[in-house]
Amino acid sequence: MNSQLQSTIQALSGGLSSVDADTAVSNVSTWQGALSGAPGAENVVAGLGELQVALENGDLEGAADLLPNLGREVEALIPDAPEADQEGLRQLADLLQG
C-alpha cells in the first residue's frame, strides 16, 4: 500500500474528530494533486474539492456530511486500482462512510 494511503488511514482510524483541520486540508490537497487526471477519479477529485472548501471555511459539519459520498466514490475506484492498494482503499472507503 502506498505511504500516502497508509498515513491517511492511520489519521482517520482515530476518528474524524481527532484530525486537525489544517492537517486535513493539507491531506485533501495532496490527494487532489495525486488523483488529478487519473482515469475514473474525477468524482473523487470533485468531492475532495468540496471537502477542502468546507474545511477551509470552518464548516466541519458540512465536511462531515460530504464524507459518506466520498467514501462511495473511493469504493468505486477499487476495481481499477493497483492490487497493492485495493485493501487500503477498502479501509479508507469504510472509514469515510463510517
Rank of each mutant, 00 (worst) to 15 (best):
Q4D: 14
Q4N: 12
Q6K: 14
I9P: 06
Q10K: 13
A11H: 05
A11K: 12
L12Y: 09
L12G: 04
L12Q: 05
S17A: 15
V19I: 14
V19W: 10
A21M: 08
A21Q: 09
D22F: 01
T23H: 12
A24N: 02
V25A: 13
S26N: 10
V28Y: 04
V28D: 00
S29D: 13
W31Y: 05
W31T: 01
W31F: 10
G33C: 05
G33L: 03
A34W: 00
A34P: 00
L35F: 08
G37R: 09
G40C: 09
N43V: 08
N43T: 14
V45P: 07
A46R: 13
L48N: 02
G49L: 07
G49D: 06
G49R: 12
E50I: 01
Q52N: 12
L55S: 02
E56C: 00
N57P: 01
N57Y: 05
G58P: 02
L60D: 01
E61L: 06
G62S: 05
A64K: 15
D65S: 14
D65Y: 00
D65I: 01
L66A: 13
L67E: 04
N69S: 14
N69T: 14
L70V: 06
L70M: 09
G71F: 07
R72P: 01
R72K: 14
E73Q: 15
E73G: 01
E75R: 12
E75H: 08
A76S: 15
L77C: 10
L77R: 01
L77N: 03
I78K: 04
P79S: 12
D80A: 15
E83M: 11
A84F: 02
Q86V: 05
Q86S: 07
G88I: 06
R90H: 07
Q91G: 00
A93T: 08
A93W: 07
D94Y: 06
D94E: 15
L95Y: 06
L95E: 02
L95S: 04
Q97A: 11
